[in-house]
Design a protein around this nucleic acid. Structure first.
Length: 269
DNA sequence: AGGGCATGGGCAT
DNA sequence: TGCCCCTGCCCTG
């Protein structure tokens, strides 16, 4: 379930389990074997998330740059380290913990400079203390592109995925098709601050919950829903179902090869 | 058993 | 715009 909150959780999880001690590193699948051999036995010195990118620091060898893409997953456990099942790109282990990385879009060794270059092409990350939301506003306020597209552009805002995109626009009554430059500053600021809040909550809980207390099934008496991504949301993957606020049908459209969801009544043009 | 699909993103065209 | 990467899950048959 890799939006930015997952990656920040993974950074913390790696730090807690592996930082400061030598780590056994291998690549049972073999695709990362050469790098793993260089890293094996080195201590993990840092684990950082920038948007959806995870960097594991093994100075002086370098950084392991991980991007989960759509399918990637990391599993953790305690010894004994299980026999490899399926395709494990990267495996870490010490005497107390192990991890297995499967199906990543990216798993590569990077230099300091390469890591900085990846970070430099990303927009501000609502989950990072060093984020500069003005950079995002400059892009949004001068762009003819739809706000729904801009929010998914990692060079504008880093870490937002399809769920946070849909949900934050719903929460602020913004039609995803509205051009960025027609979004006023107050609305944008409210969206940014809401992303900070929602994504921090996502890090804390490990799931995406965006429904305000007054709209939960408990509060409204509506039947509870089951969301297969594991959280309570207003519009994401609820096409055709009644809006939790106005009861009109939630709309969906394929935009830039991604499913977009919104409520036409609550988010008018 | 097999197809479709998914919370991403780089790249060719 | 669409293909590829290459995993897991859910549905159909």
């Amino acid at each position: 379930m890799p939006e930015g909150h997952v990656i920040h959780r993974l950074a913390t999880a790696h730090r807690e389990r592996f930082a400061g001690r030598p780590v056994r590193v291998d690549s049972p699948q073999g695709k990362f074997a050469d790098a793993a051999a260089l890293l094996d036995g080195q201590p993990l010195e840092a684990a950082e998330a920038w948007g959806k990118h995870l960097f594991l620091g093994f100075a002086p060898v370098g950084w392991v740059h991980i991007h989960l893409g759509l399918y990637g997953k990391v599993a953790f456990g305690e010894p004994p380290v299980p026999r490899p099942v399926g395709q494990i790109r990267l495996r870490l282990a010490n005497d107390d913990h192990w991890s297995e990385l499967r199906g990543p879009n990216t798993c590569a060794l990077r230099t300091d400079e390469e890591r900085a270059a990846v970070a430099a092409r990303l927009g501000p990350d609502p989950l990072r203390a060093d984020a500069d939301p003005e950079r995002a506003w400059r892009r949004v306020s001068t762009s003819r592109s739809a706000i729904g597209t801009l929010l998914m552009d990692q060079a504008v805002v880093a870490g937002v995925g399809n769920i946070y995109r849909a949900e934050v626009l719903f929460r602020h009554g913004v039609d995803p098709h509205r051009p960025g430059r027609e979004v006023d500053r107050a609305t944008w600021t409210a969206c940014w601050e809401d992303l900070v809040t929602l994504m921090r909550e996502g890090v804390r809980l490990g799931r995406i919950d965006t429904v305000r207390p007054e709209h939960t099934p408990e509060a409204t008496g509506r039947p509870p829903r089951v969301d297969d991504h594991g959280g309570e949301v207003y519009v994401y993957r609820r096409a055709g179902q009644p809006c939790l606020v106005c009861e009109g049908p939630v709309a969906t459209a394929k935009v830039a090869a991604r499913n977009l969801f919104w409520c036409p009544r609550c988010q008018p043009r």
